[in-house]
């Protein structure tokens, strides 16, 4: 940078400076690279309880010797004007078999709204083993004024779920996709 006005550093200095600047730029890039890396990392370890795992098939070998309790938790973010709940609080499932669950959401306003449900699974060691085949969380959901709608979920619990897990909690947080301006006094 600005080599000509720099006090004649030797060629060595100039190329070393260039390399170091490149290193700095690369590390800036690396900061951004951490974003996809983090996703890969989460995918592998279940870190963050993130589960967007989509089952490749709906056919697995059921393991009838185990029974897993799946609990549903629903959260509406930041007092958003929604009602959102699971139709059943929990269910007992056999790993490897496919199950259905329904959630109901209602737009409490007189305007059209778009919502996004964000899933999370606890404990973290289970999140890679909770596989969704169909989920309303895959896409944005559009709601008419005051519309109430049932939303389906189809899932399989992977028979490879670690032995020490007997309960899985699936949480959905319901967000308005029109973001509340963060500058608002809250």
């Amino acid at each position: 940078m600005n080599d000509s006005t720099e006090k004649k550093p030797g060629n060595d200095s100039r190329s070393l400076t260039g390399k170091l600047l490149l290193l700095a730029a690369a590390m800036f890039g690396f900061g951004y690279l951490l974003v996809p890396l983090y996703d890969v990392f989460c995918e592998i370890t279940g870190f963050g309880g993130r589960t967007n795992t989509v089952a490749e098939s709906s056919q697995e070998n059921p393991d009838f010797s185990r029974s897993i309790r799946v609990e549903f938790v629903t959260t509406v973010n930041e007092y958003a004007p929604w009602e959102f709940s699971a139709d059943r609080d929990s269910m007992e499932v056999t790993p490897g078999k496919m199950y259905y669950a329904t959630f109901t959401a209602r737009n409490l306003t007189d305007d059209k709204k778009v919502a996004q449900a964000v899933p999370s699974v606890a404990p973290v060691s289970a999140s890679g083993h909770f596989k969704k085949i169909e989920c309303f969380c895959f896409t944005n959901q559009e709601f008419r004024a005051n519309e109430e709608r049932a939303m389906p979920l189809q899932f399989i619990v992977d028979p490879e779920l670690p032995e020490f897990v007997d309960t899985i909690t699936l949480q959905y947080t319901f967000y308005d996709t029109v973001r509340v301006s963060a500058n608002d006094e809250s």
Partner: peptide, 9 residues
Amino acid sequence: IAVMPVLAG
């Protein structure tokens, strides 16, 4: 050089 750019990012 390794970490200040990460903070900037």
